[in-house]
Design a protein around this nucleic acid. Structure first.
Lengths: 232, 232
DNA sequence: CGGCATCCGGGAAGATACTG
DNA sequence: CAGTATCTTCCCGGATGCCG
Protein backbone atom coordinates (compact mmCIF):
# COMPACT_ATOMS: atom_id res chain seq x y z
CA UNK A 1 0.00 0.00 0.00
CA UNK A 2 2.99 2.26 0.43
CA UNK A 3 3.36 2.08 -3.32
CA UNK A 4 0.52 4.49 -3.67
CA UNK A 5 2.97 7.19 -2.74
CA UNK A 6 4.67 6.74 -6.04
CA UNK A 7 1.51 7.04 -8.02
CA UNK A 8 0.00 9.73 -5.89
CA UNK A 9 -1.71 12.48 -7.70
CA UNK A 10 0.52 15.39 -8.55
CA UNK A 11 -2.50 17.33 -9.60
CA UNK A 12 -3.47 20.58 -8.01
CA UNK A 13 -5.87 23.27 -8.94
CA UNK A 14 -4.46 25.70 -11.40
CA UNK A 15 -5.75 28.54 -13.49
CA UNK A 16 -5.83 27.56 -17.14
CA UNK A 17 -4.49 30.92 -18.18
CA UNK A 18 -1.24 31.83 -19.92
CA UNK A 19 -1.19 35.26 -18.31
CA UNK A 20 1.82 35.84 -16.10
CA UNK A 21 -0.31 36.87 -13.16
CA UNK A 22 -2.25 33.65 -13.28
CA UNK A 23 0.98 31.71 -13.47
CA UNK A 24 2.36 33.58 -10.49
CA UNK A 25 -0.75 32.61 -8.57
CA UNK A 26 -0.27 29.01 -9.59
CA UNK A 27 3.18 29.24 -8.04
CA UNK A 28 2.57 31.19 -4.85
CA UNK A 29 -1.18 31.73 -4.73
CA UNK A 30 -2.00 29.02 -2.24
CA UNK A 31 -2.71 29.95 1.29
CA UNK A 32 0.43 30.73 3.31
CA UNK A 33 2.79 30.27 0.36
CA UNK A 34 3.78 33.91 0.03
CA UNK A 35 4.21 34.29 3.77
CA UNK A 36 6.60 31.36 3.77
CA UNK A 37 8.56 33.14 1.05
CA UNK A 38 8.53 36.32 3.10
CA UNK A 39 10.00 34.55 6.10
CA UNK A 40 12.87 33.27 4.00
CA UNK A 41 13.79 36.60 2.42
CA UNK A 42 16.45 37.31 5.04
CA UNK A 43 18.04 33.90 4.71
CA UNK A 44 17.40 30.20 5.36
CA UNK A 45 15.22 28.96 8.19
CA UNK A 46 14.37 25.67 9.75
CA UNK A 47 10.95 24.08 9.77
CA UNK A 48 10.32 25.05 13.36
CA UNK A 49 11.55 28.60 12.80
CA UNK A 50 8.96 28.95 10.10
CA UNK A 51 6.24 27.59 12.34
CA UNK A 52 7.14 30.07 15.04
CA UNK A 53 7.12 33.00 12.66
CA UNK A 54 3.83 32.06 11.10
CA UNK A 55 1.25 31.93 13.84
CA UNK A 56 -1.55 29.71 12.75
CA UNK A 57 0.05 27.58 10.05
CA UNK A 58 -0.24 23.89 10.76
CA UNK A 59 2.60 21.47 10.28
CA UNK A 60 1.05 19.54 7.45
CA UNK A 61 0.18 22.67 5.50
CA UNK A 62 3.72 23.96 5.98
CA UNK A 63 5.04 20.66 4.68
CA UNK A 64 2.82 20.90 1.63
CA UNK A 65 3.82 24.48 0.91
CA UNK A 66 7.50 23.71 1.23
CA UNK A 67 7.08 20.82 -1.18
CA UNK A 68 5.16 22.97 -3.61
CA UNK A 69 7.62 25.84 -3.50
CA UNK A 70 10.53 23.48 -3.88
CA UNK A 71 9.09 21.77 -6.91
CA UNK A 72 8.34 25.17 -8.40
CA UNK A 73 12.03 26.00 -8.10
CA UNK A 74 11.57 28.75 -5.55
CA UNK A 75 13.38 27.18 -2.63
CA UNK A 76 15.68 24.31 -1.81
CA UNK A 77 16.00 21.98 1.09
CA UNK A 78 19.55 22.09 2.37
CA UNK A 79 21.42 20.36 5.13
CA UNK A 80 23.72 22.54 7.17
CA UNK A 81 27.25 21.22 7.67
CA UNK A 82 28.00 19.63 11.06
CA UNK A 83 27.88 20.26 13.92
CA UNK A 84 24.59 22.07 13.33
CA UNK A 85 23.47 19.38 10.94
CA UNK A 86 19.94 20.60 10.82
CA UNK A 87 17.85 20.98 7.76
CA UNK A 88 17.04 24.41 6.43
CA UNK A 89 14.97 25.84 3.62
CA UNK A 90 16.58 28.45 1.44
CA UNK A 91 15.26 30.48 -1.43
CA UNK A 92 16.80 30.03 -4.85
CA UNK A 93 18.05 33.07 -6.76
CA UNK A 94 14.72 33.30 -8.46
CA UNK A 95 12.99 32.94 -5.12
CA UNK A 96 14.89 35.95 -3.83
CA UNK A 97 13.76 37.87 -6.88
CA UNK A 98 10.24 37.77 -5.50
CA UNK A 99 11.21 40.44 -3.00
CA UNK A 100 10.12 43.37 -5.18
CA UNK A 101 6.76 41.68 -5.67
CA UNK A 102 6.32 41.12 -1.98
CA UNK A 103 7.44 44.63 -1.16
CA UNK A 104 5.06 46.21 -3.60
CA UNK A 105 2.22 44.24 -2.06
CA UNK A 106 3.16 45.54 1.34
CA UNK A 107 3.41 49.13 0.16
CA UNK A 108 0.06 48.88 -1.53
CA UNK A 109 -1.66 47.28 1.46
CA UNK A 110 -0.32 49.98 3.75
CA UNK A 111 -3.03 52.26 2.36
CA UNK A 112 -5.81 49.88 3.37
CA UNK A 113 -8.44 51.39 5.63
CA UNK A 114 -8.92 48.03 7.32
CA UNK A 115 -5.37 47.37 8.38
CA UNK A 116 -5.04 46.36 12.02
CA UNK A 117 -1.56 47.17 13.35
CA UNK A 118 -2.17 45.61 16.75
CA UNK A 119 -1.76 42.05 15.53
CA UNK A 120 1.50 40.18 16.07
CA UNK A 121 4.42 40.59 13.64
CA UNK A 122 7.44 38.48 12.96
CA UNK A 123 10.97 39.84 13.09
CA UNK A 124 11.37 39.37 9.37
CA UNK A 125 8.15 41.27 8.73
CA UNK A 126 9.30 44.35 10.53
CA UNK A 127 12.74 44.25 8.96
CA UNK A 128 11.20 43.82 5.54
CA UNK A 129 8.84 46.71 6.16
CA UNK A 130 11.88 48.92 6.74
CA UNK A 131 13.31 47.95 3.38
CA UNK A 132 9.93 48.71 1.88
CA UNK A 133 9.03 52.01 3.48
CA UNK A 134 12.49 53.57 3.73
CA UNK A 135 12.56 57.12 2.40
CA UNK A 136 16.05 57.98 1.11
CA UNK A 137 15.32 61.71 1.07
CA UNK A 138 14.98 61.68 4.85
CA UNK A 139 18.35 60.08 5.33
CA UNK A 140 20.66 62.74 3.91
CA UNK A 141 24.08 62.84 5.42
CA UNK A 142 23.44 60.07 7.88
CA UNK A 143 26.07 57.37 8.13
CA UNK A 144 25.51 54.76 10.79
CA UNK A 145 25.31 51.10 11.64
CA UNK A 146 22.11 50.07 13.38
CA UNK A 147 21.57 46.83 15.23
CA UNK A 148 18.34 45.05 16.08
CA UNK A 149 17.80 42.36 18.68
CA UNK A 150 14.44 40.62 18.81
CA UNK A 151 15.06 37.87 21.33
CA UNK A 152 17.64 35.70 19.62
CA UNK A 153 16.98 36.99 16.13
CA UNK A 154 19.42 39.73 15.33
CA UNK A 155 19.89 42.00 12.34
CA UNK A 156 22.38 44.62 11.34
CA UNK A 157 21.83 47.61 9.08
CA UNK A 158 24.07 50.07 7.36
CA UNK A 159 22.77 53.51 6.54
CA UNK A 160 24.97 55.43 4.14
CA UNK A 161 24.65 57.50 0.95
CA UNK A 162 20.88 57.66 1.37
CA UNK A 163 20.78 53.89 1.12
CA UNK A 164 19.69 51.42 3.75
CA UNK A 165 21.12 47.93 3.73
CA UNK A 166 19.56 45.49 6.18
CA UNK A 167 20.76 41.94 6.73
CA UNK A 168 20.49 39.17 9.21
CA UNK A 169 23.63 39.21 11.38
CA UNK A 170 25.13 40.05 14.70
CA UNK A 171 24.87 43.54 16.10
CA UNK A 172 28.62 43.81 16.62
CA UNK A 173 29.96 47.19 15.67
CA UNK A 174 26.60 48.90 15.58
CA UNK A 175 26.48 52.57 16.55
CA UNK A 176 23.15 51.96 18.15
CA UNK A 177 21.12 48.82 18.83
CA UNK A 178 17.40 48.47 19.39
CA UNK A 179 16.53 45.70 21.84
CA UNK A 180 12.81 45.09 21.76
CA UNK A 181 10.06 43.01 20.16
CA UNK A 182 8.94 43.29 16.55
CA UNK A 183 5.63 44.67 17.72
CA UNK A 184 7.19 47.42 19.77
CA UNK A 185 9.58 48.25 16.97
CA UNK A 186 6.52 48.73 14.79
CA UNK A 187 5.01 51.07 17.37
CA UNK A 188 8.16 53.17 17.31
CA UNK A 189 8.40 53.29 13.53
CA UNK A 190 4.80 53.56 12.46
CA UNK A 191 2.73 54.73 15.41
CA UNK A 192 5.20 57.44 16.34
CA UNK A 193 5.51 56.28 19.90
CA UNK A 194 8.32 58.28 21.56
CA UNK A 195 11.41 56.26 22.33
CA UNK A 196 11.71 57.84 25.76
CA UNK A 197 8.26 56.57 26.65
CA UNK A 198 9.01 53.12 25.33
CA UNK A 199 12.19 52.93 27.34
CA UNK A 200 10.40 54.12 30.48
CA UNK A 201 7.73 51.48 30.03
CA UNK A 202 10.38 48.78 29.54
CA UNK A 203 9.14 48.15 26.02
CA UNK A 204 12.54 48.80 24.53
CA UNK A 205 16.21 49.19 25.35
CA UNK A 206 18.60 51.21 23.32
CA UNK A 207 22.31 50.61 23.44
CA UNK A 208 24.67 53.17 21.98
CA UNK A 209 24.00 56.45 20.27
CA UNK A 210 20.48 57.43 21.22
CA UNK A 211 20.45 60.39 18.84
CA UNK A 212 20.86 58.12 15.83
CA UNK A 213 18.00 56.00 17.09
CA UNK A 214 15.76 59.06 17.26
CA UNK A 215 16.58 59.90 13.68
CA UNK A 216 16.30 56.35 12.48
CA UNK A 217 12.70 55.91 13.55
CA UNK A 218 11.63 58.88 11.41
CA UNK A 219 12.87 57.44 8.13
CA UNK A 220 9.84 55.31 7.34
CA UNK A 221 6.81 57.42 6.44
CA UNK A 222 3.51 55.66 5.89
CA UNK A 223 1.33 56.53 2.90
CA UNK A 224 -1.99 58.20 3.46
CA UNK A 225 -4.88 55.84 4.09
CA UNK A 226 -7.39 55.33 1.35
CA UNK A 227 -10.78 56.91 2.08
CA UNK A 228 -13.72 54.74 1.27
CA UNK A 229 -15.98 56.61 -1.14
CA UNK A 230 -19.46 57.29 0.12
CA UNK A 231 -22.14 54.89 -1.04
CA UNK A 232 -23.83 56.18 -4.16
CA UNK B 1 -35.59 30.14 7.52
CA UNK B 2 -34.62 32.81 5.02
CA UNK B 3 -33.82 34.97 8.02
CA UNK B 4 -30.63 33.03 8.49
CA UNK B 5 -29.26 35.01 5.59
CA UNK B 6 -29.32 38.13 7.69
CA UNK B 7 -27.47 36.61 10.57
CA UNK B 8 -25.10 34.67 8.40
CA UNK B 9 -21.54 34.64 9.48
CA UNK B 10 -19.42 37.36 7.97
CA UNK B 11 -16.36 35.60 9.17
CA UNK B 12 -13.67 34.47 6.81
CA UNK B 13 -10.26 33.05 7.23
CA UNK B 14 -7.64 35.63 7.82
CA UNK B 15 -4.02 35.67 8.77
CA UNK B 16 -3.61 37.04 12.27
CA UNK B 17 -0.60 39.05 11.26
CA UNK B 18 -0.06 42.80 11.21
CA UNK B 19 2.45 42.55 8.37
CA UNK B 20 1.39 44.39 5.25
CA UNK B 21 1.87 41.32 3.07
CA UNK B 22 -0.44 39.29 5.23
CA UNK B 23 -3.00 42.06 5.10
CA UNK B 24 -2.71 42.25 1.33
CA UNK B 25 -3.40 38.54 1.21
CA UNK B 26 -6.43 39.01 3.42
CA UNK B 27 -7.68 41.48 0.85
CA UNK B 28 -6.87 39.79 -2.44
CA UNK B 29 -5.39 36.43 -1.48
CA UNK B 30 -8.45 34.34 -2.14
CA UNK B 31 -8.62 32.29 -5.24
CA UNK B 32 -9.53 34.33 -8.36
CA UNK B 33 -9.55 37.65 -6.51
CA UNK B 34 -6.45 39.08 -8.12
CA UNK B 35 -7.50 37.90 -11.56
CA UNK B 36 -10.79 39.72 -11.15
CA UNK B 37 -8.79 42.83 -10.30
CA UNK B 38 -6.64 42.30 -13.36
CA UNK B 39 -9.64 42.14 -15.64
CA UNK B 40 -10.86 45.48 -14.33
CA UNK B 41 -7.57 47.34 -14.74
CA UNK B 42 -8.57 48.69 -18.16
CA UNK B 43 -11.95 49.88 -16.99
CA UNK B 44 -15.31 48.62 -15.75
CA UNK B 45 -16.82 45.33 -16.84
CA UNK B 46 -20.08 43.53 -16.45
CA UNK B 47 -20.57 40.28 -14.61
CA UNK B 48 -20.78 38.28 -17.79
CA UNK B 49 -17.73 40.00 -19.27
CA UNK B 50 -15.78 38.86 -16.25
CA UNK B 51 -17.02 35.32 -16.63
CA UNK B 52 -15.97 35.27 -20.25
CA UNK B 53 -12.50 36.58 -19.47
CA UNK B 54 -11.91 34.20 -16.62
CA UNK B 55 -12.19 30.72 -17.98
CA UNK B 56 -13.09 28.41 -15.16
CA UNK B 57 -14.53 30.75 -12.57
CA UNK B 58 -18.01 29.77 -11.54
CA UNK B 59 -20.82 32.24 -11.06
CA UNK B 60 -21.14 31.83 -7.33
CA UNK B 61 -17.43 32.26 -6.73
CA UNK B 62 -17.40 35.37 -8.88
CA UNK B 63 -20.29 36.74 -6.86
CA UNK B 64 -18.45 36.10 -3.61
CA UNK B 65 -15.23 37.70 -4.87
CA UNK B 66 -17.03 40.79 -6.10
CA UNK B 67 -18.72 41.13 -2.73
CA UNK B 68 -15.45 40.68 -0.92
CA UNK B 69 -13.55 43.13 -3.07
CA UNK B 70 -16.34 45.66 -2.77
CA UNK B 71 -16.44 45.47 1.00
CA UNK B 72 -12.67 45.81 1.07
CA UNK B 73 -13.02 49.09 -0.81
CA UNK B 74 -11.30 47.88 -3.96
CA UNK B 75 -14.20 48.09 -6.36
CA UNK B 76 -17.69 49.47 -6.64
CA UNK B 77 -20.87 48.23 -8.19
CA UNK B 78 -22.19 50.90 -10.53
CA UNK B 79 -25.21 51.21 -12.75
CA UNK B 80 -24.57 52.67 -16.16
CA UNK B 81 -26.89 55.49 -17.21
CA UNK B 82 -29.70 54.58 -19.62
CA UNK B 83 -30.11 53.34 -22.27
CA UNK B 84 -27.34 50.84 -21.43
CA UNK B 85 -28.63 50.49 -17.89
CA UNK B 86 -26.51 47.51 -17.13
CA UNK B 87 -24.55 46.96 -13.99
CA UNK B 88 -20.79 47.18 -14.06
CA UNK B 89 -17.97 46.70 -11.60
CA UNK B 90 -15.32 49.38 -11.43
CA UNK B 91 -12.15 49.64 -9.41
CA UNK B 92 -11.81 52.43 -6.89
CA UNK B 93 -8.77 54.70 -7.02
CA UNK B 94 -7.05 52.45 -4.54
CA UNK B 95 -8.07 49.44 -6.58
CA UNK B 96 -6.30 50.92 -9.60
CA UNK B 97 -3.23 51.42 -7.46
CA UNK B 98 -2.84 47.66 -7.36
CA UNK B 99 -1.56 47.75 -10.93
CA UNK B 100 2.12 48.02 -9.94
CA UNK B 101 1.69 45.03 -7.66
CA UNK B 102 0.02 43.00 -10.37
CA UNK B 103 2.61 44.03 -12.94
CA UNK B 104 5.52 43.11 -10.73
CA UNK B 105 3.98 39.68 -10.21
CA UNK B 106 3.72 39.22 -13.93
CA UNK B 107 7.28 40.34 -14.55
CA UNK B 108 8.55 38.02 -11.88
CA UNK B 109 6.56 35.03 -13.10
CA UNK B 110 7.83 35.55 -16.63
CA UNK B 111 11.08 33.94 -15.51
CA UNK B 112 9.35 30.77 -14.38
CA UNK B 113 10.63 27.60 -16.02
CA UNK B 114 7.17 26.09 -15.82
CA UNK B 115 5.24 28.76 -17.66
CA UNK B 116 3.00 27.39 -20.38
CA UNK B 117 2.34 30.01 -23.06
CA UNK B 118 -0.07 27.83 -25.01
CA UNK B 119 -2.96 28.36 -22.63
CA UNK B 120 -5.70 30.86 -23.41
CA UNK B 121 -5.28 34.55 -22.57
CA UNK B 122 -7.77 37.33 -22.17
CA UNK B 123 -7.55 40.58 -24.07
CA UNK B 124 -6.81 42.50 -20.89
CA UNK B 125 -4.01 40.08 -20.04
CA UNK B 126 -2.16 40.67 -23.25
CA UNK B 127 -2.64 44.43 -23.09
CA UNK B 128 -1.43 44.47 -19.51
CA UNK B 129 1.58 42.39 -20.43
CA UNK B 130 2.55 45.10 -22.91
CA UNK B 131 2.44 47.72 -20.20
CA UNK B 132 4.55 45.41 -18.08
CA UNK B 133 7.21 44.28 -20.50
CA UNK B 134 7.60 47.45 -22.58
CA UNK B 135 11.22 48.46 -22.98
CA UNK B 136 11.51 52.23 -23.47
CA UNK B 137 15.07 51.98 -24.75
CA UNK B 138 13.86 50.07 -27.79
CA UNK B 139 11.32 52.72 -28.69
CA UNK B 140 13.59 55.69 -29.43
CA UNK B 141 12.22 58.14 -31.93
CA UNK B 142 9.07 56.20 -32.57
CA UNK B 143 5.84 58.15 -32.55
CA UNK B 144 2.74 56.23 -33.50
CA UNK B 145 -0.78 55.27 -32.61
CA UNK B 146 -1.45 51.57 -32.49
CA UNK B 147 -4.87 49.94 -32.50
CA UNK B 148 -5.87 46.48 -31.32
CA UNK B 149 -9.04 44.59 -32.18
CA UNK B 150 -9.73 41.35 -30.38
CA UNK B 151 -13.23 40.51 -31.54
CA UNK B 152 -15.31 43.32 -30.12
CA UNK B 153 -12.76 44.36 -27.52
CA UNK B 154 -10.69 47.21 -28.84
CA UNK B 155 -7.75 49.14 -27.46
CA UNK B 156 -5.71 52.11 -28.58
CA UNK B 157 -2.13 52.88 -27.76
CA UNK B 158 0.08 55.92 -28.13
CA UNK B 159 3.78 55.46 -28.44
CA UNK B 160 5.75 58.67 -28.01
CA UNK B 161 8.79 59.96 -26.12
CA UNK B 162 9.80 56.43 -25.22
CA UNK B 163 6.53 56.03 -23.39
CA UNK B 164 3.70 53.67 -24.18
CA UNK B 165 0.19 54.58 -23.18
CA UNK B 166 -2.43 51.87 -23.65
CA UNK B 167 -6.14 52.33 -23.02
CA UNK B 168 -9.41 50.72 -23.86
CA UNK B 169 -10.93 52.60 -26.76
CA UNK B 170 -11.75 52.62 -30.45
CA UNK B 171 -8.99 52.16 -32.99
CA UNK B 172 -9.95 55.35 -34.85
CA UNK B 173 -6.94 57.33 -35.93
CA UNK B 174 -4.46 54.52 -35.41
CA UNK B 175 -1.47 54.40 -37.73
CA UNK B 176 -1.66 50.66 -37.67
CA UNK B 177 -4.18 48.21 -36.21
CA UNK B 178 -3.67 44.60 -35.23
CA UNK B 179 -6.76 42.46 -35.82
CA UNK B 180 -6.29 39.09 -34.18
CA UNK B 181 -6.87 37.09 -31.02
CA UNK B 182 -5.08 37.66 -27.71
CA UNK B 183 -3.33 34.34 -28.11
CA UNK B 184 -1.98 35.15 -31.55
CA UNK B 185 -0.94 38.58 -30.39
CA UNK B 186 1.07 36.82 -27.70
CA UNK B 187 2.71 34.63 -30.31
CA UNK B 188 3.77 37.70 -32.26
CA UNK B 189 5.09 39.56 -29.23
CA UNK B 190 6.68 36.81 -27.19
CA UNK B 191 7.28 33.82 -29.42
CA UNK B 192 8.75 35.93 -32.21
CA UNK B 193 6.41 34.54 -34.82
CA UNK B 194 6.89 36.57 -38.01
CA UNK B 195 3.95 38.79 -38.88
CA UNK B 196 4.12 37.76 -42.51
CA UNK B 197 3.63 34.16 -41.54
CA UNK B 198 0.77 35.01 -39.24
CA UNK B 199 -0.95 36.99 -41.94
CA UNK B 200 -0.48 34.17 -44.44
CA UNK B 201 -1.97 31.68 -42.03
CA UNK B 202 -4.94 33.97 -41.39
CA UNK B 203 -3.99 34.30 -37.76
CA UNK B 204 -3.81 38.05 -37.97
CA UNK B 205 -4.72 41.01 -40.09
CA UNK B 206 -2.86 44.28 -40.08
CA UNK B 207 -4.45 47.49 -41.22
CA UNK B 208 -2.28 50.51 -41.90
CA UNK B 209 1.43 50.98 -41.62
CA UNK B 210 2.94 47.52 -41.63
CA UNK B 211 6.41 48.85 -40.87
CA UNK B 212 5.28 50.25 -37.54
CA UNK B 213 3.73 46.92 -36.70
CA UNK B 214 7.03 45.18 -37.35
CA UNK B 215 8.80 47.53 -34.99
CA UNK B 216 6.08 47.41 -32.38
CA UNK B 217 6.29 43.66 -31.84
CA UNK B 218 9.98 43.95 -30.93
CA UNK B 219 9.47 46.32 -28.01
CA UNK B 220 8.65 43.71 -25.39
CA UNK B 221 11.66 41.60 -24.49
CA UNK B 222 11.16 38.68 -22.15
CA UNK B 223 13.57 38.08 -19.26
CA UNK B 224 15.77 35.05 -19.31
CA UNK B 225 14.20 31.93 -17.84
CA UNK B 226 15.36 30.78 -14.47
CA UNK B 227 17.43 27.60 -14.59
CA UNK B 228 16.57 25.06 -11.99
CA UNK B 229 19.71 24.27 -10.01
CA UNK B 230 20.82 20.67 -10.16
CA UNK B 231 19.82 18.51 -7.26
CA UNK B 232 22.54 18.51 -4.63
C1' DC C 1 13.18 17.76 18.30
C1' DG C 2 12.26 17.68 13.24
C1' DG C 3 9.70 16.09 9.70
C1' DC C 4 6.16 13.57 7.65
C1' DA C 5 1.89 10.43 7.29
C1' DT C 6 -2.95 9.83 8.49
C1' DC C 7 -7.59 10.71 9.87
C1' DC C 8 -11.35 13.92 10.57
C1' DG C 9 -14.54 18.04 10.57
C1' DG C 10 -15.66 22.29 8.46
C1' DG C 11 -15.67 25.26 4.86
C1' DA C 12 -14.30 27.05 0.36
C1' DA C 13 -14.27 26.05 -4.54
C1' DG C 14 -16.31 23.83 -8.73
C1' DA C 15 -20.22 22.26 -11.61
C1' DT C 16 -24.81 22.40 -12.80
C1' DA C 17 -29.41 23.84 -12.68
C1' DC C 18 -32.58 27.27 -12.01
C1' DT C 19 -34.94 32.03 -11.46
C1' DG C 20 -36.25 37.07 -12.14
C1' DC D 1 -28.01 39.10 -18.30
C1' DA D 2 -27.13 38.72 -13.50
C1' DG D 3 -26.99 36.35 -10.45
C1' DT D 4 -29.02 32.31 -6.67
C1' DA D 5 -29.54 27.34 -5.05
C1' DT D 6 -27.78 22.97 -4.48
C1' DC D 7 -24.71 19.31 -4.54
C1' DT D 8 -20.07 17.42 -4.76
C1' DT D 9 -15.25 17.67 -4.36
C1' DC D 10 -11.28 19.14 -2.43
C1' DC D 11 -8.41 22.12 0.55
C1' DC D 12 -7.38 23.82 5.05
C1' DG D 13 -6.69 23.35 9.96
C1' DG D 14 -6.20 20.51 14.10
C1' DA D 15 -4.94 16.31 16.43
C1' DT D 16 -2.45 12.23 16.73
C1' DG D 17 1.13 9.17 15.95
C1' DC D 18 5.39 7.26 13.69
C1' DC D 19 10.24 7.35 12.86
C1' DG D 20 15.02 8.88 12.70
Amino acid sequence: MKLQKITKKEKQRHYEDACGIAHALDLVGERWALLVMRELLFGPKRFSDLRESLPGISANVLTQRLEGLESAGLLMKRKLPPPAASQVYELTDWGYESEPVIRSMGRWAARSPAHDPTLPVSAVSIMLSMRTMFDPARARSVDARIGFRFGDETFIGRLVDEKLDLQRGTTDGADVTFITTPRHMAAALYAGMPLSLMIDKKMMQIEGNRKIAEIYVTLFPLPEKFKLPAKV
